[in-house]
Structures are given as structure tokens and as C-alpha cells.
């Protein structure tokens, strides 16, 4: 994974101070931006492979940075945010951020999220007809789900849901994103559908539905397919 460049956007010098050596230790090249404007400029000029973005910036809202990035790029974005600002996180994810990390964070957690985001962006590009998630195998063209080779009967909606989650495995998907994709824009707020279907999926797919390992809940935000 050498040659990967990471754009770190944060107005706190202290963050850059420890991030730079940590990223270097992982073989990444760190790019530093203190403001939103700098970040956007660097994203254009240096074409980083992934962005780590703090939402509180002095010159513009971090969400604005995501919006502008998404106008021309699908570069993975991992958001740094305070734990008590759920709404902000959801908005950032809806705007197209890939994942989030709560401040303060351990460096190991951040690196894991960065790797996941990078990997999945590559996988999405590949458009593989068969998706895998642990013991689960999803055959998109034939609409079949196999668990350890045994076919599991799913309703069409269940299939759409699990396919959508697994296609973005590792990435947090907000309730709204899932509902819009699977049920359509009119149902963006019908989170109760989601709870019911996720419950059903878990009983059908998980080894232990009470302690799910495949479909993980991000409390208050959405779901993520585990890896």
C-alpha cells in the first residue's frame, strides 16, 4: 500500500503533529490542510487517495467541504467528529462521507477505518457479480444468497437490502441512504421498515442473531456490514 497519500484537514496543529508521524509509520504520505479552502485546493492539485476531515473548520463547515468534493470526485472521506454531534455525522454521511471516527480516537482505529475505506472504494469500482461477507455469498445476477454453500430464501426486499449493505461493506450507511436506495425516496423517514427487515435478515443470516457480526448497528446513525 505504498504511495498512498492522505489529506488531513484539521485546524488544530496538535492533530497534525501526531498524525504525520503515525501516517508515515504506516507508509502513507501525509498532506496537511488547516482550512477548508486549503483542503479543496490540495484535493485538486495533489489528488490524494483519501481525506481525513475535521468538521469544525475556521473558514467553512466541514460538510461544505464534502459537498464540494463530491461535485467532482468520489474520493473516500473519513470524518473526524465529536461524539455528541450525531446530527452532524449523519449529515456528513448523507452528503457522501464514507465513515467517521469520534474524537478523541486511538490511532489504530483511524488507520483501520482508512484501510477499509480505501479497500471498498476499489471493490466498488470492480463491480463484482458475486459479493462475499464472511460465510455469506451473494450472487447478484441470479438473486441468490448462500450461507456456507446452502441457499437461504430471502424476499426481494431482503435481498436488495443485504446486497446494498454488503456492496458497501465496512462503510457506515445512514438510515436515510439505505431507505432511499432500497425503498425509494418517498420512504426516507420510515426507519421502522429498516428495523423490521434488519431483524429478519439477522435471524436468517447471522450465526447468533443476538450478537450480530454481519450487519452491525451504528446507534442513532445507521448500519454497516461487518467484514
Amino acid at each position: 500500500m505504498t504511495g498512498v497519500s492522505v489529506l488531513v484537514v484539521d485546524d488544530e496543529p496538535a492533530i497534525h503533529r501526531f498524525m504525520a508521524p503515525a501516517l508515515a509509520a504506516n507508509g502513507y504520505t501525509a498532506l496537511r490542510a488547516d482550512t477548508g479552502a486549503q483542503a479543496l485546493a490540495l484535493a485538486v492539485n495533489r489528488r490524494p487517495d483519501i481525506v481525513v476531515l475535521d468538521l469544525g473548520l475556521p473558514d467553512m463547515d466541514g460538510k461544505e467541504v464534502i459537498r464540494r468534493l463530491r461535485e467532482w470526485s468520489d474520493i473516500p472521506v473519513v470524518v473526524l467528529s465529536a461524539r455528541d454531534r450525531e446530527i452532524e455525522k449523519i449529515e456528513a454521511l448523507d452528503l457522501g462521507a464514507d465513515d467517521f471516527v469520534n474524537k478523541p480516537f486511538g490511532i489504530g482505529e483511524l488507520m483501520a477505518r482508512l484501510r477499509a475505506a480505501l479497500r471498498h472504494r476499489m471493490q466498488e469500482k470492480g463491480e463484482t457479480p458475486v459479493l462475499r461477507l464472511g460465510p455469506i455469498e451473494i450472487d447478484i445476477p441470479r438473486h441468490r444468497v448462500l450461507r456456507e454453500g446452502v441457499e437461504i430464501k430471502l424476499t426481494p426486499k431482503e435481498f436488495d437490502l443485504v446486497a446494498f449493505l454488503v456492496r458497501h461493506a465496512g462503510r457506515v450507511l445512514t438510515h436515510r441512504q439505505i431507505l432511499r436506495e432500497v425503498w425509494g425516496p418517498a420512504h426516507e423517514h420510515d426507519t421502522q421498515y429498516l428495523r423490521v427487515y434488519v431483524g429478519q435478515l439477522r435471524t436468517k443470516l447471522e450465526a447468533d442473531p443476538a450478537n450480530p457480526a454481519l450487519i452491525l448497528t451504528e446507534p442513532g446513525i445507521g448500519y454497516r456490514a461487518g467484514e
Binding site: 492533530i15 474524537k103 478523541p104 490511532i107
Partner: peptide, 21 residues
């Protein structure tokens, strides 16, 4: 949070990647 993030970040960097730094 900011000083805590720095401390935690620096400490975990040292723990995880100490030898490479």
C-alpha cells in the same frame, strides 16, 4: 477534546508504531 485527542493520538501512535517512528 482537542488536548485529549492529541494525547491519545500521540500515545497510540507510539504504542502501535513506536519502532517505525
Amino acid at each position: 477534546r482537542t488536548p485529549l485527542a492529541s494525547i491519545l493520538g500521540a500515545a497510540t501512535s507510539l504504542i502501535d508504531y513506536g519502532p517505525e517512528i
